[in-house]
């Protein structure tokens, strides 16, 4: 057991190394279907959307979400799943449905043919350390570094304005009821998200806090660590266009918990 702070980390992992780790996660390689040379997989990112109060960074770090009456609805504290709208995915292969954005590259390296519509453009994996990928298949796409790039982007996604997606799963029916009854405190809209690589909701321990009158006044959810892939890697806010939120929505921010049109997702790593 030990706690070694950042200054001592420098000799093992410096700033450049950390940026490359972040970049390696957020900038996918492209996969264009099954091929005989390998069993590599498409990358997938799941944007899990929530409404209600935005948790604090400390709650995210501990994986412990502490919700009181009024954080979602006016009459009772909520469980994390109560505020869940569902997920929209991004995947880098050909498959797509109403809940996934398909990802492609930018125009000059678009992985057509056979991919007539690409409804998300994701910056591809580049290798600042000068690594060469050995291509086992001609369709393997690797994007060049764009000119004038002096910012290390952990993740850079631009979404098609014509691609509306539906939040899949979630607790929308109950949220609609709460909205109609005037109990929804933070509006009828997505407020925050996390991105993981798993469509499943994380398992959690739940503690209900009561007061002396036996009123339920808070719910404490602690995420279990048994499925690390279900834990959020990035946490951020939703907002309308121009709001400066980590994900801006051109449609689906005001008065809509069912579907959304995403504008962009830009995460810097420096």
């Amino acid at each position: 057991m030990s706690d070694q702070g950042a200054p001592r980390l420098e000799t093992l992992l410096n700033k450049q190394d950390l940026q490359e780790i972040l970049h390696g996660w957020g900038s996918p390689t492209y996969y264009l279907g099954m091929h005989k040379y390998g069993s590599s997989l498409a990358s997938r990112y799941f944007i899990h959307a929530f409404t209600g109060r935005v948790p604090t960074p400390a709650e995210m770090y501990y994986g412990t979400f502490i919700n009181k009456t009024g954080d979602l609805v006016s009459n009772t504290p909520h469980d994390l799943a109560d505020a869940y709208l569902g997920w929209i995915g991004i995947r880098t292969d050909l498959s797509a449905d109403a809940h996934y954005y398909r990802a492609g590259g930018n125009a000059d390296t678009e992985p057509s043919p056979g991919q007539a519509t690409i409804d998300a453009e994701v910056s591809g994996r580049v290798f600042p350390e000068g690594i060469s990928l050995v291509k086992g298949y001609t369709h393997y796409i690797r994007l060049p570094v764009k000119e004038h790039h002096d910012t290390s982007m952990m993740m850079s996604v631009t979404f098609s304005p014509s691609a509306k997606k539906h939040w899949h799963g979630g607790n929308k029916a109950a949220l609609k009821t709460a909205h109609d009854e005037g109990r929804l405190v933070h509006g009828f809209k997505p407020t925050w998200f996390y991105i993981s690589e798993n469509l499943d909701f994380p398992a959690r321990d739940t503690q209900k806090v009561m007061d002396r009158d036996n009123q339920h006044i808070a719910t404490i959810n602690s995420l279990q660590s048994t499925h690390f892939s279900r834990l959020g890697v990035l946490y951020g806010r939703f907002g309308s266009v121009g709001s400066g939120a980590e994900i801006e929505l051109s449609d689906g921010y005001e008065n809509n918990i069912y579907s959304a049109t995403l504008v962009s997702l830009k995460i810097k790593s420096n």
Partner: peptide, 22 residues
């Protein structure tokens, strides 16, 4: 934005997409 430290596992573990995809 919060980048959670679990990104270390997501980026480097051999069972996760960042490594599986290549």
């Amino acid at each position: 934005l919060v980048i959670h430290p679990v990104v270390l596992i997501a980026a480097e573990n051999r069972t996760r997409y960042a490594q599986l995809s290549i």
